[in-house]
């Protein structure tokens, strides 16, 4: 009889079951989703209003306080939602642990990069307008 057989079942279950962060994750995804319903529709309207106007007018539009605020909110919330969603996709389909961890980190890194670039761009537009 090997030593492993004397272990309490809980010892073997640890690390295989719930990681305890599921509920917080679930809520973040739903709250960002609900916010993006509103911001997504607003963003489409914003883009449509920018069609066929010249560069200076487009910049002035984006630089308006409410527009700039909602654009920053949209970019940050969207990248947050993307990170949560893509992490689930990776966890579902990538079953080799090191690949899963690396891919998740790549997604997080690119999302942070994208969100910061977007926010910085809006701030530059606001400051120059």
């Amino acid at each position: 009889m090997s030593a492993q057989d004397f272990r309490h079942p809980l010892k073997r279950a640890r690390g295989l079951g719930s990681a305890q962060s599921g509920l917080g994750y679930w809520w973040s995804q739903r709250v960002t989703a609900a916010v993006l319903v509103v911001l997504g529709l607003w963003f489409v309207a914003m883009v449509l209003s920018l069609l066929h106007i010249d560069f200076a007018t487009a910049r002035a539009m984006v630089a308006k306080p409410w527009n700039a605020l909602f654009l920053i909110l949209f970019v940050v919330t969207a990248f947050w939602h993307v990170t949560l969603g893509l992490h689930v996709v990776i966890e579902d389909y990538v079953h080799t642990r090191w690949r899963e961890v690396v891919l998740r980190m790549v997604v997080t890194f690119l999302a942070v990069l994208g969100a910061l670039a977007g926010v910085l761009a809006v701030l530059r537009i606001v400051l120059r307008a």
Partner: peptide, 15 residues
């Protein structure tokens, strides 16, 4: 997720 980078590109270009 990929399309969001087009949005960022647009904002960066406008800036």
């Amino acid at each position: 997720a990929a399309g969001l980078f087009l949005v960022v590109w647009g904002l960066l270009a406008l800036a």
